[in-house]
Design a protein around this nucleic acid. Sequence first.
RNA 1: GGGCCCGUAGUAUAGCUUGGAUAUCACGGGGGCCUCCGGAGCCUCAGACCCGGGUUCGAAUCCCGGCGGGCCCGCCA
Length: 539
Amino acid sequence: MHRFAGKSGQTPAAFAEQLRAQLSTGPDVAQVHVVGAYLNFRADIGRLTQRTLEAVLTRGDRYGSLEALGRPACVEHTSANATGPFHIGRVRNAIIGDTLARALRAAGTPVTTQYYVDDMGRQAAMITWIWSMPREQWPAEIRAAVDGQEVPGEKVDAHRGRPYPAVSAYLKSHPEAQAQVAALVEQIENGHAPSQHRALTQAILDGMLQSLARLGIRFDEFVWESDFLHDGSVERVLDRLHHAPHAVREANGAWAVDTSTYGLPKESTTVVVQRGNGTSLYVARDVAYHLAKFARFERVVDVLGQDHRLHALTLDALLAEIGESRRPEFVIYQDITVPDGGRMSTRGGSAVWLDHLLAEAVERARREVLARHEDLEPSAVDAIAEAVGTGAVRYHIVRVAPEKPVVFRWEDALSFEGRSGPFCQYSYVRAVAVLRKAEATQGPYPFDARTLHEADELELIRTLARFPRVVGSAARRSHVHALAGYAHDLAEQFNRFYHAVPVLRSEVERPSRIALVAAVRQTLGNTLDLLGITRLEAM
RNA sequence: GGGCCCGUAGUAUAGCUUGGAUAUCACGGGGGCCUCCGGAGCCUCAGACCCGGGUUCGAAUCCCGGCGGGCCCGCCA
């Protein structure tokens, strides 16, 4: 307004008034009026109500989803090394990745999720090194770190991962052990891994996946790094890299690529892709992995911690070097840190285990449930506590924008009030309870839009109408935290409506208000689905 | 040293892509609300855009420079 007013030589307010006079109202725009230098358009609220409730109630679980099928996409996320239990630093990747996959599917993109299993590096070799030895032969330092810590029946990832920090420390001061691990790495690379190697990786992985499954996180496919070696694709990548425009042969026979023309930081422009002894490096194998993804998917999305940012740039550069024009899309998130200023580390002992966090959350949820209900079946209490506890954890981690750092605090992670998963679940339960009492848990829900005109009703309808745009924007911009924000907005607006406007005790408005509550149940439920949080009928 | 990311009330966050009206929401703090559809709730009060320049009629938002915090810079993954 100001810009155009300047050109036409009028004051902004006069210009706005003149413009308003030339505008006519249409089917969706009931009024246009001037406030200072601004034009306000007022929607035909009856029409908005009519369309929104119709859309929600007829589309049901598909409200907010797009019908049009987009290009098939692969979302790779989590991909944590199988060296022990999940800690909550790693789980941010899983929660962002899983939520993004759900949002993309709702936005019409067919998604395949992949977990890249690293069975090749030194870390995986360290696990095999220690567990291929009889316990009596373990170095005393390592045995000391494990003895007395084991719990009968503990999860396999906790069990097999326990010696890992001690092994890591031991190797630093024992070159002969280091040499053994290095020899193991070479055997694995040459396809002569000890027989139990893959099984150990798989076992720890299974334990980690059990924890993720409690959060509703599952994967469509598991891609093993070593497979790219054995099917020859790494060799083909290396061959292409040898002939790349900026390939460099080092004195000892190693191959590198000078990536300085790709805008990478100085002092890290020479990327070694193959060692002097002929074995490949991680980046080279990752190029092979991405070529395999490009062969099947039109969009390739990688969810990565910020410590992998340079790796992502390097990968782009190497793809360019071999003449590949396609690129992955990277979703980068910041680390979760612990309050005294450390990064969460398995080796350093500062990690908060996901299993520990889930156990605390579920236990706390159980106490809350028991305090509210005396006569519930134990199995019902268990189910509610599990849903509430895991929902709280998922919500707490997804609610912050990926690019913002998160400091982990127990009291925040276990909060069931305010901006939390349980708050959203509770509002859903409340909507269910109203419908149950109205004996209207099933449709149809006839309504008359003209009877809905309370301020809190209209605001609630506007919030419902916003949902499809929120889903689209979250998927397009990888802003999964916006879904958490929306769930809270909707739950909060519903609570306001609930306190301000009678539903069951109303007269002419009753059917319409019941339809509105049903629409809230549907939309809030759809949002919880996208967040991977369980819908509850009671809590 | 170089590169990338972040900086919003006591704490924690949204808004930044695409500049616009009184900056969102929560926790904590003050004051209220259960004979009334589920109080894990609702109402209400106080409280914030790191600093300095620039662009603009207008900057939390864009640009430049500081300061503070995180991460990365390996023939590891």
